[in-house]
């Protein structure tokens, strides 16, 4: 189905109190590709990412105008169940936050919430997604020990597996490698390249080289505006806007 996992943003503006963090953004995110959001820090990258699964919701004083359409449905509409929207997307944050429970329970948390009680099915889910995140071999002997005992790199892969286990179609990554050592970062990047066969992946990063390694499609944000977007090759090889050129050549960062 072509429309699955399809995110479309129309005239999105986000205000924190009086400050406008995002200014009138409209863009279509391509399916089953890795879309990378780049731009200098404080330009609204994370805000844009969080607007996709309504994590902007809980904190007060935030106003959102415009639309974010997921599968054709405006997620900021009045009758939208936010839990259902969020289930469609897995989130990787800057620093891994394993839930305060065992490795097994971390993965099983989501499926259990959504009603899966069958022990065998849960076992299968846990194994399957730990393998997908290539963590299975390292943890299969200690599934019931606390997730907080894993290394940071392992924790981030655990969070990836945890996110995949609720059956999303989209993966959101908010600078997902920024807290990791180079080896673990590489590990995660490899997973992303594999996962794009099945998932639509959106990643925020401030590392230009990482963006070049991963991106199929690029959004360049500057001061809350979407300056330029397009296929990775076009943006990196032949940016149209002066400001994009300067950013890509490393003059501004």
């Amino acid at each position: 189905m072509e429309s699955k996992g399809h995110i479309k943003v129309e005239n999105l503006s986000v205000f924190y109190g009086k400050d406008q963090a995002l200014k009138d953004i409209s863009v279509k995110i391509p399916n089953k590709k890795i879309t990378v959001i780049i731009g200098p820090s404080g330009c609204g990258k994370t805000t844009l990412l969080k607007s996709f699964n309504r994590l902007l919701d809980p904190s007060d004083n935030i106003k959102v105008t415009g639309q974010v359409l997921v599968d054709g449905e405006d997620i900021y509409g009045p009758n939208v169940e936010v839990t259902r929207i969020r289930k469609k997307m897995g989130l990787l944050s800057q620093k891994p936050y394993p839930l305060p429970m065992s490795i097994y329970d971390n993965i099983a948390y989501g499926p259990r919430l959504h009603g899966e009680r069958n022990k065998h099915k849960l076992d299968r889910i846990v194994e399957h997604f730990l393998k997908t995140a290539s963590l299975w071999e390292e943890v299969k002997a200690k599934l019931h020990s606390p997730a907080s005992h894993l290394s940071v790199g392992q924790q981030q892969r655990l969070c990836l597996a945890r996110g995949l286990a609720v059956g999303p179609e989209i993966i959101l990554g908010d600078e997902p490698t920024s807290a990791l050592d180079p080896k673990s970062s590489q590990h995660i990047e490899k997973r992303f390249l594999e996962l794009k066969q099945q998932y639509t992946i959106i990643i925020v990063t401030h590392i230009l080289r990482q963006a070049k390694r991963l991106a199929d499609y690029v959004l360049f944000l500057y001061m809350g505006r979407l300056i330029e977007h397009g296929p990775a090759d076009d943006i990196f090889e032949d940016p149209q806007e002066e400001i994009t050129k300067e950013y890509i050549r490393g003059i501004i960062s």
């Binding site: 839990t83 259902r84 289930k87 919430l113 959504h114 009603g115 899966e116 059956g167």
Partner: peptide, 17 residues
């Protein structure tokens, strides 16, 4: 792998309630 989640729409309603 995702199919079994869709059977729980009703369940979903209860959680939200």
């Amino acid at each position: 792998m995702t199919r079994f989640f869709q059977q729980f729409l009703n369940f979903e309603k209860i959680r939200i309630l």
